[in-house]
Write a protein that binds this DNA or RNA. Structure first.
Lengths: 114, 114
DNA sequence: AGGATAGTTATCCATTTGGATAACTATTTC
DNA sequence: GAAATAGTTATCCAAATGGATAACTATCCT
């Protein structure tokens, strides 16, 4: 997985796009072809493919080609890298998961005007 | 916080840079001025400021200016947005936190050559 | 007041990113 | 074998990103 800072860079980068997160959610319900992944996305196919390449490079997703169909599936474990990063920070700051959730409930209505 | 997809976009984007994650770690140990944040970073000041703007726009960080010093501090709760996103996915996929950690332990030595 | 300190603004620049089209290759399918 | 299907490659383009320098403003400090 090429651990190290760049792995996190690419992982967070991959997650920073709504369309890509959408693809992740779709793949969470099972493997899918390029066309299937593209279908809800109002985007040209080559554009979809670029997103898929970003996801695959990050390690979040993997694909194999059979005949003319390339099938993508999620590498669910990959998200653990991010989870671990967050867990480490939360541990070193002194926030418990529970307190964090409580705080979140209180502040979830805050707004940054933009 | 301008919830919605774009909030996550900006959050993940903010986290996708090593220098910015370094600033977050520094701020985890307490508030700091622009110069203090810049000091370990081998980067021109204006560049550091851009990173800080990205962090502040994402909501991960906040700053106030007193005299000529602008002091940044972490908004630790902000990371909960990301945590929640991950937690939701893990819940809908059927991975338990424990299994995920175990899997991670097994696969942490994998490498993508690059 | 004058110098040092802390940050800010304005540009500039190369690279990356997210999008598109056009044209092409490989498989099925009829 | 011809047409439809699935994906790929090659370009192109505008905007965003990550970096720099130069020049400036606003506070301290003596």
């Amino acid at each position: 997985m090429l651990e190290g800072p760049q792995a996190l860079d690419r992982m967070f980068q991959a997650l920073s796009d709504q369309s890509r997160r959408g693809m992740i959610d779709r793949l969470g319900r099972g493997p899918a072809s390029v066309t299937e992944l593209a279908q809800p996305l109002d985007m040209a196919l080559p554009t979809v493919m670029k997103h898929l390449q970003v996801l695959e490079t990050s390690g979040l997703v993997q694909s194999e080609k059979a005949g003319r169909v390339r099938t993508y599936h999620l590498r669910k474990e990959a998200l653990a890298v991010v989870e671990r990063w967050i867990a480490e920070r939360k541990a070193s700051w002194n926030i418990t998961f529970d307190r964090l959730d409580l705080f979140l409930a209180d502040t979830s209505t805050e707004t940054i005007d933009e």
